[in-house]
Write a protein that binds this DNA or RNA. Structure first.
Lengths: 194, 194, 194, 194
DNA sequence: CATGAATGAGAGTTCATTCAT
DNA sequence: GATGAATGAACTCTCATTCAT
């Protein structure tokens, strides 16, 4: 598959992404994607053989981009609290965005492919998140910004909370206020009282 | 609807529950339920018109039973910490149970019926949970067992964490150890140091 | 499946038989049968799940009927030569009939399901044919009608010849004259010269 | 068509032959051949327009080679019985060979292109076979090796038997012993008793 | 009430064939 | 000549839903 088809492949992935964002995973058929892409039925099969594969490739792409984002915005002069705040702000944005979010598709996908594998994508992302947050909290402790007796527990707590809020955002709506309150609660649990 | 058909209705719900527990929501067809119940295709339609309706009725049933459970086990002499511990233990059990759990079905259902309605079932359960936990924490504060500057924040935190862990339990496996660590983290954040 | 559906099942088999007789096996799709039967796409699947299964059932039916025919027409007073002549006449009729013949379908089926199994249908029919013919020839020898040093070889010879003529009949046409000549050759090889 | 493309044409035919030998005729698609040849989809169409055409050309090639073989091995000093034995031995080898045999493909092809044409390939091969065998038998009679009242009948008999055994070889397996027994039966029917 | 045969829409998938490059 | 992406027709198979009995 040459240059040209790599472009088309990407086009299909981009278009399919919109479809998944709109309809989740289980409701999306190959036909839906074919129609969204305005290509022929057989044409899609030249590039992908199932909605599974398509979503998975989209997720891998996103994962790379996310990794970049994660570390990208941090400047050397930022304090731990600044970085944490930034991180939570990012998460909040993602949480509340309705359009364009793959959240539901991702959950549906992983429900349909349940695995207790330690190397499954959700698990790796959780572990990575905990690791980064733990380091950050420890950095904050070292710098005197944070007080925390169990940095790993706190890091896990944040990850679980974010996940929980994500779910509530998708299943019953969650207001910005609710998110802000909880993020504030988390920050105040860490920051050393003046 | 007479006595007899109420029984059959209940029989269908009970049987369908097992099907949903095993296969989630999106993978369950009317045919699946018909076969599990050993009734005729048309027969099922006399009682229910869609898998949606069936799952919803199951959930309503469960909600009632859960409410009973929630308040049922508490004896007057229990301390706030005891009650909270008991509650978390219950949640842990539910979290880790693989068999017999409607978790995935419920998520799939509410993903398929996303709503920002404040009276949606997940929202009501979340709000109810927060309310109960908040009261409990305040009771603990009054009795000197707990220290907490933001009882509502803490209560929400617990609910989000539980939700987050539930998801991780279903999407990538979560070990008992991981749950225990986080529940410990939560309790220690509340309990007054000796 | 009750009384009524047994009728329909039979109706489908009868109709499908015509389709196979006309188009062979590999060219027949479930759709062809659906259309010939004037039933719905899904309807056919209530009774059969593949063209394989349908043809196989037709063949089993035919096999039973054939068994009956084989032994049915023989009267006690017939001589061995009479019976053999009758048998060959039957075979000739089947050989030359163009309409209504499953021959091609059968070959196509067994090419597609090649097996060296001793209990495969073609093998069983060959063995049975040889056995019957051998007995017949021996009876003819006993009665002084036939002369033959190797009754089993002669019996096999007849079966192979019939099979070979069947093939030629289907692949390139074989005239009645050609068949008659060969059958005559066979009979004269057996019959004791006057 | 230049030198180069004649080579490629031959390459395609040789490669396709293997495919047909392995999968028969009806199961082979243009795609199969394209893939086996490692050429482009469109490329194949520059040389051939259907699997029909490809197989037919293969068969024409083989027919020429076979003719050569038929007459090639005979030395002037061989007796009629020697030649016949040699011929039957060749046929036996072809019959029992599983790999590399186009037998099934050929049958499937001619089933799909049934014709009563006297000039169809199978018919021509049958007629040619009968002619050669008849001459051979007559030669044997002249030389006192064979006794036969109906040389043409005997020749046809052999051709039918070979065809029948070919079919049984492909549809249900035929053992070497079975073939040997029948060939022996044929030879003994011809050879003058000592 | 209950049955289960029947329907038909729709998803998945494969290939013969074409055509711009 | 050669490529291989693209098309679209054709087939398989599954279910939600209806309806005569």
């Amino acid at each position: 598959m040459g240059e040209k088809s790599a472009q088309k492949r990407q086009y299909i992935l981009d278009t399919a992404r919109k479809v998944f964002a709109e309809k989740g995973f289980k409701n999306v058929t190959m036909k839906d994607i074919v129609e969204a892409c305005n290509i022929s039925r057989g044409g899609l099969y030249l590039y992908f053989e199932s909605t599974d594969q398509i979503l998975l490739e989209i997720l891998h792409m996103e994962a790379e981009e996310t990794d970049d984002l994660f570390t990208g915005h941090i400047s050397k002069t930022d304090t731990a609290a600044d970085i944490l705040t930034l991180f939570l702000k990012e998460q909040k944005k993602e949480l509340l965005q309705e359009q364009n979010s793959l959240t539901v598709a991702v959950y549906e996908y992983f429900f349909a492919h349940r695995s207790t594998d330690k190397n499954s994508m959700p698990r790796k992302q959780f572990d990575a998140g905990v690791r980064v947050l733990e380091k950050l909290i420890q950095a904050g402790i070292s710098s005197g910004e944070f007080y925390c007796e169990d940095p790993k527990g706190a890091a896990s707590n944040i990850m679980y909370v974010l996940e929980g809020m994500k779910i509530y955002a998708q299943t019953c709506g969650i207001t910005e206020k609710m998110v802000d309150e909880q993020l504030l609660y988390i920050m105040q649990g860490l920051i050393v009282d003046v």
